[in-house]
Design a protein around this nucleic acid. Structure first.
Lengths: 157, 157
DNA sequence: ATCCGGATGAAACAAACTTGCAATCAGCTG
DNA sequence: CAGCTGATTGCAAGTTTGTTTCATCCGGAT
């Protein structure tokens, strides 16, 4: 996580592959980008050290492990005092059902992504997260009917 | 992707590990869940075949590769006729800057997640995606100030 | 022209994954 | 209750992949 990323065309080509499948052998990557396996390996390690690559993870299908419901919540707070906002961030982030949490500008303050097994679970979660929190003014719920595109891939072109 | 997932405690423990770091050696996984490396490997392969594990990917920090802006958009359409909705789904999904797209119930119809390098890029994207599309009634933009929690991890407990 | 830092590829090495096989166990069936 | 069947396991051998070493090369600065 030192300082200078400074990625060249090789790095970008490697990232493009790893974002789709990080089990691709370094040799195979090397062939596709015209580099030797050790060169590929060193570039990957460098990008991991610099934080360009945040993590290497398996993506699992929520429905297949008993979390068929994806919900999307806009939260509006009463006060935007720094310490209250920070407390809210920490509170949301530590909940496993909350996959994603963003602090945003606009008509809402927070945007959350939640996966749950049942609507009853969601209802319980709202009670814990929103109704029990004095600083939450209101929230709006959107239930996902279709996960059209789900990923965290960033274009590198 | 055949039929029956039917995951036991071993599978869930393995998923929990792989969702955080899928470079963990099978031997190390085996030690943590009390299973041999081959057993771990067979379970992983089975979950991949059944689609429980959708993909293995590297997560990249958007800011480090020139996409510092994360934007979040609610889209409302004019008509919900099936073919128009399908066309919209395909149209959104094929755009690389659109990381995530959900079709939702509630006050909006689609929710999009977009990463861009500059606001000018976003402006150009809105013109292409929304203003040039007759079926888009209106859209609301939220700009992320803080990516409090970003991931696709699903709780397995 | 020389030096120096950084990156590279080939080869040797180490570690991880993968396969074959015999043993074990649970649930049936006769 | 014995025996069969299918599924899962661990061990060990074999194979692939990742990692390190080292000599070389290139570009910029002295």
């Amino acid at each position: 996580m030192t300082a200078p990323p400074n990625l060249d065309a090789f790095d970008r080509a490697i990232l493009s592959i790893l974002q789709k499948d990080n089990t691709t052998p370094q040799r195979a990557i090397g062939e596709r980008v015209n580099l030797s396996a050790p060169a590929v390996q060193r570039r990957i390690r460098r990008m991991e050290e610099h934080g360009v690559i945040r993590a290497n993870v398996a993506l699992v299908d929520p429905a297949k492990i008993g979390h068929p419901i994806t919900i999307f919540v806009e939260v509006e707070v009463e006060s935007e005092r720094a310490e209250l906002i920070d407390a809210a961030k920490r509170g949301f982030a530590e909940v496993p059902e909350v996959q994603q949490c963003y602090y945003v500008t606009g008509e809402a303050d927070f945007i959350l992504f939640v996966t749950v097994a049942t609507m009853a679970d969601y209802e319980a979660l709202t009670r814990r997260l929103f109704f029990a929190n004095n600083n939450v003014k209101r929230f709006r719920t959107f239930v996902a009917m279709d996960r059209v595109k789900v990923g965290l891939e960033v274009p590198v072109g």
